[in-house]
């Protein structure tokens, strides 16, 4: 059975992530900032809500940044929302803030996108939007999309979007004024901009796949 550590650094709603993981069969879900428990867990979930500045500050205060750097590539890790953004190098939020820098790339503001302004699109990008699954290096969709229709809708709520620089890192794409990467994957890391724990059946399916994923 699978134990999952949901990294708790004081930001956002961890309850729903934990409940959703339990729903799809995680045997032990621990919401924790204890490095020992994090290292002992089979799988790691890095959630995140709110401002990136606060997320990064709290991550550092709790030593979560060190734990993630240490464990990424080592055991399956799922980043969610700001948890995805934090994996990149830099965000424009709060006047500019450095992320964990695990992957090169930037996090940008929707309101600065010309088409968002011209089409009077609301910011935050909030609600259910289609996700196009991108083929991986082997030409197939990522295993975490298994059983989920290409183009299925997931629940988003964010004002900033990820622009990964690494070719092939993106595993899913969404569109809001412009096409943007809403999922990235490399090795045992998978991260999504949307909230699988709030995306009904398809979201639960993605979490189910994560628990059974053998990267």
């Amino acid at each position: 059975m699978t134990s999952v550590a949901v990294l708790d650094y004081g930001m956002g709603n961890l309850h729903s992530v934990a409940k959703a993981l339990e729903k799809v069969g995680a045997s032990r879900v621990t919401v924790t900032d204890d490095p020992a428990i994090i290292r002992a867990a089979d799988r790691i979930v890095l959630p995140g809500q709110g401002a990136m500045r606060d997320c990064m500050a709290e991550m550092r205060a709790h030593g979560i940044d060190t734990a993630v750097r240490e464990l990424v590539g080592d055991k399956p890790l799922l980043g969610i929302c700001v948890g995805m953004q934090a994996l990149l190098a830099h965000s424009e939020e709060n006047g500019g803030i450095d992320g964990l820098g695990i992957h090169p790339g930037a996090v940008r503001f929707f309101s600065d996108v010309p088409a968002v302004r011209e089409q009077h699109l609301k910011v935050p990008h909030m609600g259910w939007n289609n996700v196009r699954q991108l083929p991986q290096a082997d030409g197939r969709p990522h295993p975490l999309w298994d059983g989920i229709a290409d183009g299925a809708r997931f629940y988003f709520v964010h004002s900033y979007y990820c622009v990964p620089e690494q070719p092939g890192l993106s595993a899913g794409e969404c569109e809001y004024g412009l096409p943007f990467s809403c999922a990235i994957a490399e090795g045992s890391m998978f991260a999504v901009q949307f909230h699988p724990e709030k995306s009904a059946k398809d979201g639960l399916r993605l979490l189910h796949n994560f628990l059974r994923w053998k990267p």
Partner: peptide, 8 residues
């Protein structure tokens, strides 16, 4: 909004 983010 500053503490928890505008999204919530």
């Amino acid at each position: 909004a500053d503490r928890f983010g505008s999204q919530c």
